[in-house]
């Protein structure tokens, strides 16, 4: 079974940039609400009832942001009440709620994105930009892991030899310096052997190609096409001005003309796309499994 997170990493990347990018450039309450609930819904669909602590922290963050705006800004025409002789307005309150909702929504989108994009998926996406970059990054990642492990080993060895004292800060810094200097020699020596191993396997013998384990299936192309269509429709709707919205001094009316409705629906579809993909995949799996 392949759900949305297992689609080609390029498609996943395009999706997250499209859905959160729009949310950063509009201030329309409907779109912001769609983005917020879509992001939260997708995150919950991946984790279920777990991660309660994270949600509580996000809620606290959202409430703080939402409360600060009406307290410090008295812009807006509809006054609700006064605190310390400064007016609290309806417009500022709503703006606070929607702006903070937008920020938290984008955070949720990126939480899901970073969970889905493991380092080799990220590497794959970057390698499409430049094959050389992907090799350099792959080697760098390998070296970081190798040196971190080596540093730990050297430290433990020195401790068990009684040659690494961590009694006070100066001793500890001195100890770390010694470990660091030997790590440099280790890296250099290692580098020579790695270079030999690369030459032995034909590195530098001509033009390179670049291999990846991710494929672009017809399903990936279909998903990508859907994302691009919904994205283009939403952007077109933005361009006609149908999704313009002002909080100050008065709330703008929410438009219901054709372009505005196209904008709401296409962004809504974009937001729900991973959920649809998941549902479709599950239904198909159920059907397939019934045949086993």
């Amino acid at each position: 079974m392949r759900d949305f997170e297992n689609t080609n990493p390029i498609v996943v990347t395009v999706y997250f940039f499209a859905v959160s990018g729009i949310c950063m450039f509009v201030s329309h309450p409907i779109l912001l609400a769609l983005s917020f609930f879509g992001a939260l819904g997708y995150f919950i669909s991946r984790h279920g009832a777990r991660k309660v602590g994270l949600h509580l922290a996000m809620l606290a963050f959202l409430l703080t942001l939402a409360l600060i705006n009406p307290l410090v800004s008295s812009a807006g025409a509809t006054q609700l009440f006064f605190i310390n002789n400064s007016p609290v307005t309806l417009e500022a309150t709503l703006y606070g709620i929607f702006a903070s909702g937008a920020v938290v929504g984008v955070i949720y989108w990126f939480l899901s994105y970073t969970e889905i994009m493991t380092s080799d998926k990220l590497l794959y996406v970057l390698s499409r930009l430049s094959p050389k970059l992907s090799l350099v990054l792959s080697m760098a990642l390998r070296y970081v892991a190798l040196l971190a492990a080596q540093r730990k080993k050297i430290r433990q060895t020195q401790i068990a030899l009684g040659l690494y004292s961590d009694g006070n800060i100066i001793d500890r810094v001195r100890g770390e310096m010694r470990v660091f200097s030997v790590l440099v020699s280790f890296a250099l020596e290692n580098g020579i052997i790695t270079a030999d191993s690369m030459a032995a396997r034909g590195y530098g013998s001509g033009r390179r190609t670049s291999f990846a384990i991710f494929k672009f299936s017809s399903r990936d192309i279909f998903t990508l096409a859907l994302i691009l269509i919904f994205f283009a429709l939403t952007v077109a709707s933005m361009a006609t001005g149908a999704l313009d919205f002002e909080f100050y001094p008065y709330l703008s009316p929410i438009k219901t003309d054709l372009w505005a409705v196209i904008g709401y629906i296409s962004y809504g579809m974009l937001v729900l796309l991973p959920t649809f993909a998941q549902m479709e995949e599950r239904a198909r799996w159920k059907y397939l499994r019934s045949k086993i």
């Binding site: 080799d120 792959s138 080697m139 191993s197 291999f211 384990i213």
Partner: peptide, 17 residues
């Protein structure tokens, strides 16, 4: 002697070259 960070990439390294 290992050049890359994942097993599959290491296997493919020589062929890429």
């Amino acid at each position: 002697q290992i050049v890359c960070d994942t097993v599959w990439h290491e296997l493919a390294f020589g062929l890429e070259n």
